[in-house]
Amino acid sequence: MKIKATLLDQIRKHGEATYPEECCGLLLGKSGPDGNRVLALYPVENRHAEQRERRYTIAPSDYLAAERAARRQGLDVVGFYHSHPDHPARPSATDLAEATFPGYTYVIVAVHQGRAGELTAWHLSPDRTRFEPETIEIEPESASVDQT
């Protein structure tokens, strides 16, 4: 995926703000043949009913609202992000069990003792058996929406 550093910082800050609970949100941008380009974030509340220290849920109604917000900006929902409080930034067994469609980018940020650390990106393999790592390409802050 391609993303600006300021957006990565916003994901880290969100993870620090909700610590010790997990944060979550949607990645808005453009999907192309060479991957997803993230141009905006849509932070949402972690709607998991309990154990939010190690679980997150994005409510379908929040997804729908994010999709509509994206469309108004000429963007699409291209993925999701969440934090792993005091756990490494790699997909857990739960992440795999709950995975949705291959093609979305899943960003994970580790938050150790309240401080954001490693940040990684993944997508589900086409046969749904595992998450594959995605490279994170930092875009200049001046990059505009229409120069895809």
Partner: peptide
């Protein structure tokens, strides 16, 4: 009609 995924997971 919209096709809307339930997105969930966690650290453990």
């Amino acid at each position: 009609l919209s096709i809307v995924p339930s997105v969930a997971g966690g650290g453990l």
